[in-house]
């Protein structure tokens, strides 16, 4: 069980959070203009990296805010956390 540094609340146990999958996948502004393949790309395709991955997490049993986490999925080490809308750190 790891510890996540919520950008709003500080360090908390992992059990207070919920993972929300890969980060920086923007919902298309005009879905109707997309082909089936383009829409499927948004809907289904995820990288699922072994290594450093940019992810969304929500402090579900806390402030209920969504934010981004940079986590090494091979050893669960968290490299950075940053708020929604902020620029991802270069890692």
């Amino acid at each position: 069980m790891f510890i996540i540094n919520c950008p709003y609340c500080g360090e908390r146990e992992q059990s207070e959070f919920k993972a929300g999958g890969e980060a920086h996948i923007v919902r298309p502004k005009q879905p109707t203009e997309l082909s089936d393949d383009q829409w499927a790309e948004y809907l289904f395709m995820r990288k699922n990296i072994k290594g450093v991955q940019f992810e969304r997490w929500v402090h579900v049993h806390g402030c209920r805010k969504w934010f981004n986490v940079v986590r090494d999925t091979s050893n669960d080490m968290i490299k950075a956390v940053y708020k929604m809308g902020e620029k991802p750190p270069s890692i």
Binding site: G20, W66, M84, G85
Partner: peptide, 9 residues
């Protein structure tokens, strides 16, 4: 909440 915070802030 997810949509409000991340897609339509």
């Amino acid at each position: 909440e997810d949509y409000l915070q991340t897609e339509w802030p």
